[in-house]
């Protein structure tokens, strides 16, 4: 933790609105946003586990909320955030090896990340719905 109380006049780098929005930059922001969303989503996962351990009444209470249209919406968002963040994390891990910085490749990895997150999320939900006996 650097000390941030030093109020001397330091040069500032240009802030966000100076830059033209680009896919790669949005993806960087979304990786952080999905990470933060998953942080709070973990609370829901643990809530579900605690309810399961607490017994049938608690469990069916939580299951009803999860199964409502609002619950499903949140869970769909959670699924997408997880898949998007996982794919984004893979990109980070590739960069960590020092590879994948070619600009055209970076652009393609970003597109694949975005498209992949949507496709995989929808596939997971289709499997889920078909496991439950159709839509």
């Amino acid at each position: 933790m650097a000390d941030s109380n030093t109020r001397t006049q330091r040069p500032l780098s240009p802030h966000l609105q100076i830059y033209r929005p680009m896919l790669t930059m949005m993806m960087s922001i979304v990786h952080r946003a999905t990470g933060a969303a998953l942080y709070f989503g973990t609370l829901l996962v643990i809530w579900w586990l605690v309810a399961l351990a607490a017994g049938p009444d608690h469990f069916s209470y939580v299951q009803d909320i999860a199964g409502s249209w609002f619950g499903r919406l949140v869970l769909f968002g959670y699924t997408w955030a997880l898949v998007h963040h996982a794919l984004g994390g893979l990109r980070h891990l590739v960069w960590d090896t020092g590879r994948g910085f070619d600009l055209e490749l970076v652009e393609w990895m970003a597109r694949l990340n975005l498209a992949g997150s949507v496709v995989i999320t929808v596939v997971i939900w289709l499997i889920g719905y078909s496991a439950m006996g159709g839509l």
């Binding site: 399961l52 017994g55 049938p56 469990f59 069916s60 699924t79 997880l82 996982a86 994390g89 893979l90 980070h92 891990l93 960590d96 997971i124 499997i127 889920g128 496991a131 439950m132 006996g133």
Partner: peptide, 29 residues
């Protein structure tokens, strides 16, 4: 990074277990 790498297989299995438990009741889950 260590936890990120561990998370990849773990999260795939996590989703698989949850999906396989869809529609289950308290006893089965």
């Amino acid at each position: 990074r260590v936890t990120a790498i561990a998370n990849i297989p773990l999260m795939i299995l996590f989703v698989a277990v949850l999906v396989s438990n869809l529609g289950g009741n308290h006893a089965s889950v």
